[in-house]
């Protein structure tokens, strides 16, 4: 059995490669021409270079693979050019699907997002809650929904879709969903709205993806979420965990979205990072409570508690410098915060 991983060098990719290697597999790791492959090199896994804009390279990279994990969906750095980002995301996904079909792939596991899960009245949302058209929130939701629709429309081979919540854990070198956490732990006061946020350990996502790939009759689309909490209460608990000042009160939704737009425009000019990205603002403002029962029952996924995820993230982040080292004499063990968070 040959397995190819698109996006193997990324945050989820490295965790997935570890999960596959732990099962005795030697996945073919497809990487972009210019990306950080230090973690993959240390794992001595085979690497193939392919650009999502080059169909011939993709076809070559997937040739002979029966299973493909696609973790390399277009991820715009900002939301300032929605039409261009949508066009790019859909074009690149078409290239991947066509390459997989040409290569004779049997099953493709596509990593989408919980941004595609619609709200449900009076209960947590499940896989049955779908948007009938692109959610009218912002680029990130629209892009993820359109890409997921395209993947699910594929008929030349089987496609299964995973919708992971905000992923936390080791190997988040780009500081993606952990941006608010890292800012807070560094003693900054990150501006934020309030709303539901769902989290999941990247290692649990990896385990679930492997099961999706190997199950005889996997669910077509599955939510991967360890729990849902209110963001502001979570940040208050994290401030206690990291012994830093509590965050300022949350911004009203409209103000947070306006700030995110202004920050992205500023960051684009200054060449640095927005203090609040539009994607994160939308995910929080429009966040829904999630029910991940299907992942537990159909795939047997056991989601780690938040404290365990944070301990693993902290240990890794302090080694690589994403978080500062512990102050001398500080207790090694953080106070638990899971009592403040409700699992769904």
């Amino acid at each position: 059995m040959t397995t190819a991983v698109l996006g193997a060098a990324g945050f989820l990719g490295v965790n997935l490669v570890d999960a596959l290697v732990a099962q005795g597999e030697r996945p073919r790791c497809v990487r972009r021409p210019r990306t950080n492959v230090l973690a993959l090199r240390q794992r001595k896994v085979p690497m193939v270079t392919a650009d999502a804009e080059r169909p011939d390279e993709l076809r070559e990279a997937l040739l002979g693979a029966d299973t493909v994990f696609h973790l390399a969906g277009h991820y715009p750095r900002h939301c300032l050019e929605p039409a261009l980002s949508l066009e790019t995301g859909l074009r690149q996904l078409r290239h991947v699907l066509d390459a997989a079909a040409a290569a004779g792939v049997k099953r493709l596991v596509y990593v989408s997002s919980t941004a595609t899960v619609a709200p449900a009245a009076g209960r947590p949302s499940t896989e049955a809650d779908v948007f009938q058209q692109a959610p009218p929130y912002g680029l990130y939701h629209a892009l993820k929904w359109q890409m997921e629709q395209l993947a699910l429309a594929e008929r030349r081979f089987e496609v299964v879709v995973a919708c992971p919540a905000a992923c936390l854990g080791p190997h988040d070198l780009r500081v993606g969903t952990s941006a608010l956490l890292v800012a807070l732990a560094r003693g900054l006061d990150p501006p934020h709205p309030d709303g539901w946020v769902s989290w999941v350990d990247a290692r649990d996502v990896a385990a679930a993806l492997v099961r999706l790939a190997r199950a005889a009759a996997p669910p077509r689309r599955v939510i991967l979420s360890a729990g849902t909490v209110g963001l502001h209460p979570l940040l208050l608990a994290l401030a206690r965990r990291y012994s830093v000042a509590p965050p300022s009160p949350p911004l009203p939704a409209a103000k947070a979205i306006a700030l995110a737009d202004a920050e992205e425009a500023r960051a684009r000019v200054d060449g640095d990072r927005a203090r609040l990205s539009r994607e994160i603002a939308d995910l929080i403002v429009w966040g829904v409570e999630l029910d991940a029962t299907l992942a537990r029952t159909s795939l047997g996924v056991v989601f780690r508690p938040l404290d365990e995820t944070l301990d693993a993230f902290d240990a890794w982040a302090r080694r690589v410098g994403t978080l500062p080292p512990h102050p001398k004499g500080a207790p090694w063990k953080h106070p638990p915060i899971s009592t403040h968070a409700s699992s769904s």
Binding site: N36, V37, L38, R319, V320, G321
Partner: peptide, 22 residues
């Protein structure tokens, strides 16, 4: 990090992410 990754590939070195951090 991309620079250090290119360096590791060019010189065939087993540089870790932790080594690159400082």
């Amino acid at each position: 990090m991309e620079l250090l990754s290119m360096l590791a590939e060019e010189l065939d070195l087993d540089v870790g992410v932790e080594d690159a951090a400082g």
